[in-house]
Structures are given as structure tokens and as C-alpha cells.
């Protein structure tokens, strides 16, 4: 029987998490399933908006969707560890370790399965950056600054730095920054550059992972997945992995180019060097949150995230 899977993404369709994944995935899956599986593709949140994925996928509104794992904090509190300062892994580490069969992937896959979703690909789109109209010179620079955050975990980090986490719709961030509704916005580098937040801000602060990162995934409705034949299930997983490897590498290579684009626009870019003075300063300031995370999350998970 022919299968047709619906796949939904949100955010800019030009973002590498979409543009470097979906076409590859579609083609690979067609080949690997020998034409058994075709796809129906929806972009820009027209089917499922970002924050609704955690109910829409288990409930089968679409078969597969892009998701920010931190958006699952309403049912799986453990996901917020990925956005916490405990997470200091590099994108290269993620490239090699957020794969089926590796502990962190399997841990969250099991968690999502208990909610009715299967993780078919997991990746690091890069640590979030702060597009701001002020310069971040140290961990105290964010004090009292209204900063737009995108999820629960990111809000907690900003709060720990003394900033005022502000919730606003994705569409309002550009104008919010421009008009000073918020002084800065935390978000993925790809999105910040794609949505041209640098046009309306003077500075970009690149924490480089000292404030956690953005782990995204493609997830599939569990019933739909399990109704596929074992061969087709394998085709889905293999295609997703291959497309994801391509996209993850693309994302890694793209980071420098994106920062250059911001510099070229005449904006000041402050990069936190790993284990440099700025890094240590932030690490110290975030220590209470890190300690809290250490005790709040299950010990086995903490170990997976922090051990070498």
C-alpha cells in the first residue's frame, strides 16, 4: 500500500533546519522506501504552529513535525536541561552524539514515546544568541533588561542573569526590538539573521553555549510510525538520519558565515570564547541555576549531559 506522510515545519522555510532537511529527507525516503512513501509538505506554521507541536503530533494533526524540544516542558520537564547552563556541548559533539542508539537521543525518544511521539531526528541548531541594543560586557550587563525569550528554559536563564524575560509573539520581535519594547531578544543565530534582527539592533552577543543551546528535532506521531511495516520504519529512520547529518554539518559550517553577515552590517559581535574570562564570568553568575538543574533533573540524565 502507498503511504503518504504529512510533514510540517514552522519558522522561516529558508532556515537550514527546513531548507537543508526537508528536500533531502523527501528524496531519500522516496528512494529508500522504493516509492512506497510520498510526502505532503507544509511550511511556515500553516499546519501546526511551534508551541502546539507537543499536542498536535501525539494527536495526529500531522504525521511529522519540526519541534523545539524545550516546547515539551509542559509534559516532559526534563527537556529544559537542554536549555540550561548544564548543557555546554559543542555543535560538533551534538553532530556525533544526538543520534539513535546514543544515550541522550534514546533518553528523550523514550520520553516522547510515552507522550505519543517518536523522535526521528535530533540536532543542535546552534546556541542561542542575543540581538540587543546594548553591549554585553559581562554577566551583569543583562540586569533589568527586558529580553524576549522563546521558552520556559530560556526564560529561566535570562532570569538567573537578572534580566526580565518577556514573552511576545514571533512576529512582533523585529518591531519590538526596533521600538524598544524589548532591549534584546534571545534566539537561534539562523533565525536572528534570517529574520534580520540585526537590522534593528546595534549588538549581537554570542554566548557560544555558556547559556545552553537549542536542540530541535523532527518528531512523528507514534501510532502512525508503528503502523508502518518494519522496512518502512527503517526507511524513515535512515532517511531522517542521513538528511539530519547533512543539515547538522551545514549548520556547523554556516555559523561563522552568519556571524560575518552580522559584522558586515556594521554591528558589534561579542563572542564568548570557550573557557575564556567572559565564559568563566557567566558560568559563575549562572552557578545557582546550574546547581539547581543538577539537583532538579534525574541523576542519570545529568550524567549523560555532563560526563566526558
Amino acid at each position: 500500500a502507498k503511504e503518504r506522510l504529512s510533514i510540517s515545519t514552522w519558522g522561516s522555510p529558508k532556515h537550514y533546519q527546513v531548507a537543508e532537511f526537508i528536500p533531502q529527507f523527501e528524496k531519500l525516503l522516496k528512494d529508500k522506501s522504493k516509492g512506497e512513501i510520498s510526502m505532503k509538505i507544509f511550511a511556515g506554521g500553516e499546519m501546526v504552529k511551534q508551541q502546539f507541536v507537543p499536542t498536535a503530533i501525539p494527536q495526529g494533526t500531522v504525521d511529522i513535525s519540526l519541534t523545539l524540544l524545550d516546547n515539551w516542558s509542559g509534559t516532559i520537564p526534563e527537556v529544559s536541561i537542554l536549555t540550561s547552563p548544564l548543557w555546554t556541548r559543542s555543535m560538533e559533539w551534538s553532530r556525533d552524539n544526538l543520534k539513535p542508539g546514543k544515550p541522550i537521543f534514546d533518553y528523550f525518544d523514550a520520553k516522547l514515546r510515552s507522550q505519543g511521539a517518536v523522535v526521528i531526528a535530533m540536532f543542535d541548531i546552534g546556541p542561542p544568541v542575543i540581538s540587543a541594543n546594548f553591549e554585553v560586557t559581562g554577566p551583569d550587563s543583562l540586569a533589568n533588561m527586558p529580553i524576549r525569550v522563546y521558552s520556559k528554559g530560556s526564560g529561566e536563564v535570562i532570569q538567573a542573569l537578572g534580566g526580565a524575560p518577556t514573552v511576545m509573539g514571533v512576529g512582533d520581535v523585529y518591531s519590538g526590538l526596533q521600538r524598544g519594547t524589548v532591549k534584546g531578544a534571545l534566539g537561534g543565530l539562523g533565525g536572528a539573521v534570517g529574520l534580520k534582527h540585526y537590522e534593528v539592533t546595534s549588538n549581537m552577543f554570542v554566548p557560544n553555549g555558556v547559556m545552553g543551546t537549542l536542540i530541535h528535532a523532527y518528531v512523528m506521531n507514534k501510532d502512525r510510525f508503528e503502523k508502518l511495516s518494519p522496512a518502512l520504519r527503517k526507511a524513515v529512520m535512515d532517511s531522517a538520519l542521513e538528511a539530519r547529518n547533512h543539515m547538522q554539518q551545514f549548520a556547523i559550517d554556516k555559523q561563522t558565515a552568519l556571524l560575518d553577515q552580522v559584522r558586515k552590517a556594521g554591528k558589534k559581535v561579542t563572542v564568548v570564547e570557550r573557557d575564556g574570562a567572559l565564559w568563566k564570568g557567566f558560568e559563575k553568575k549562572l552557578e545557582p541555576l546550574t546547581a539547581e538543574a543538577r539537583s532538579k533533573y534525574p541523576a542519570d540524565l545529568v550524567k549523560m549531559v555532563t560526563s566526558n
Partner: peptide
């Protein structure tokens, strides 16, 4: 049942828009 679940999921998504 799928149609029923999609009805309510999409309805809720359409209602909860801060703008």
C-alpha cells in the same frame, strides 16, 4: 476519531493567538 481530534486541536490552536 482522527477527524475529531484534529477538529479540537486546530480549533484550540486558532483560538490561542495573543494578537
Amino acid at each position: 476519531f482522527q477527524a475529531f481530534r484534529t477538529f479540537i486541536n486546530v480549533g484550540w490552536q486558532s483560538a490561542s493567538i495573543f494578537e
